[in-house]
Design a protein around this nucleic acid. Structure first.
Lengths: 177, 177
DNA sequence: CTCCACTAGATTCATCTGCATGGACTAGTC
DNA sequence: GACTAGTCCATGCAGATGAATCTAGTGGAG
C-alpha cells in the first residue's frame, strides 16, 4: 500500500510471503494426504521409496545414511523406517559391499510397484493442484522465485550478487494473452 | 525448453514447481529451527502461542477446539500440547463461560513475554531469509502466485474463472531497475 | 600386528503423536 | 423433568520420534 513495490522489502512483505509459503505447502500436502495419494504409506515412507526409485542405477539401492540425508530425516529414524518397510516387504536390506558397517537398501519388486502406483496418483494430484490456478509461465516464475529464495538462504552473502538477475530473467508473469 | 512458456502447464512443470515449493518451505523452516528462532519451544508450541496472541481481544483467550482448527492439529494433540504449556506456566486453562464443556485457553503474562521474544527473533529471521534473494516486487509476485495456488486448490472449479486475472494483475517481476 | 580415532547403523529411553474411546455437559423433544 | 442426540475436551494405548548412546567395522600410525 506504500512504496512497497520497489526496492528493499519491508518486514510486513517478507512475513506475509513466508506465511503464505508455509500455508500453501501445508494445505496442499494435507490435501494430497486426504485425497489418498499415499495409500497406506506415510509421506515419509513414500519419500524413501521415491528416493530409492530415483537413485541412479535403477536398483543399485542406496546407503541408509544417504537416504537419511536426502530425506532430511535423522539417522535413527531412517533406520527404523527402513526396518518397517522391510517388514512390509517393500525394501530389502543387505550389508554394503566394500564396507561392512554400511547397509544397502533396495526396492523389492513389490516396493517398486507400490512406489510407481503411488507416484502416478501423486503426480496427477500435484498437476491438478498446481495447474488449477496458474498457467505455464506463472508456474515457471513461481519455481524460479522459490529457487532463488532457497538458494539465497544457504549461500554466503558474498556470492549472492548474480542471483537476482537470474530470477529476473524468467521474464514477466501472465503469459496467457 | 519446449512450448512450455505459454498455455496449459505440463506434468513436468507442475511437479517441478511443487517439489521446489516443498523443498523451499522445508529448508527455510529447518533453518529457522537451527538458528534458534523458537528457543526451547517446538514449532507447534510457538504456533499455539502466536495464535493466542493474535486472537482478537488481546487476552480473551481462545477455545481449545478453535486452536486445534487454526493450527491444523488434531484435538487430542492440542489438548496435551496445552497441558504442557500450562505446566510450563505459559498459558492458563479455565472452564469456558456459557459452556461448561469448553475450555478457554489464555496466555499468561510470562507466555505473552515468551511469545513476543520468540516472535521478534523469528520475524527477523524470516526477513533475512526472504529478503536475501528477492526485491519487494518479486516478493509481492511470489505471495500472489502462492495465494492463487492455495485458493484454486480448495475452490470448486466453477469459481476459478477470475482467479488467474488476479494473479496476473500484480504485474511483471523484476521491478528493480 | 596393535592401537586409536573415526564412521555407519542399531538401540535405548523419554517424549510426542494420532486414533479410538470415554466422561461431562448442552440442547432439543416429548 | 426425563430421554436422546450432539458437542467439547480428556485419556488409554499403540506406534513413531529424536537425542544420546552403544556396537561393529574401517583406516591410518607406529
Amino acid at each position: 500500500m506504500t512504496a512497497a513495490r520497489t526496492g528493499q522489502p519491508g518486514l510486513r512483505a517478507t512475513t506475509t510471503a513466508w506465511r503464505e509459503l508455509l500455508r500453501t505447502s501445508t494445505e496442499l500436502m494435507r490435501w494430497f494426504e486426504e485425497t489418498g495419494d499415499f495409500g497406506d504409506l506415510t509421506v515419509r515412507e513414500y519419500d524413501v521409496l521415491r528416493a530409492l526409485a530415483e537413485s541412479r542405477d535403477g536398483d543399485g539401492g542406496a546407503r541408509l545414511g544417504r537416504l537419511a540425508e536426502v530425506t532430511y530425516l535423522p539417522q535413527p529414524s531412517m533406520s527404523r523406517l527402513v526396518e518397517r518397510l522391510e517388514r512390509r516387504g517393500l525394501v530389502s536390506r543387505c550389508s554394503a559391499p566394500q564396507d561392512g558397517r554400511g547397509v544397502l537398501v533396495r526396492l523389492t519388486p513389490r516396493g517398486r510397484e507400490v512406489q510407481a502406483a503411488v507416484g502416478r496418483r501423486h503426480v496427477r494430484s500435484i498437476h491438478q493442484a498446481m495447474a488449477a490456478g496458474l498457467d505455464a509461465a506463472q508456474l515457471e516464475t513461481l519455481t524460479a522465485l522459490l529457487a532463488t529464495v532457497r538458494r539465497a538462504q544457504h549461500t554466503p552473502p558474498a556470492v549472492r550478487a548474480g542471483a537476482r538477475q537470474q530470477a529476473d530473467a524468467v521474464g514477466p508473469i501472465g503469459g496467457r494473452s
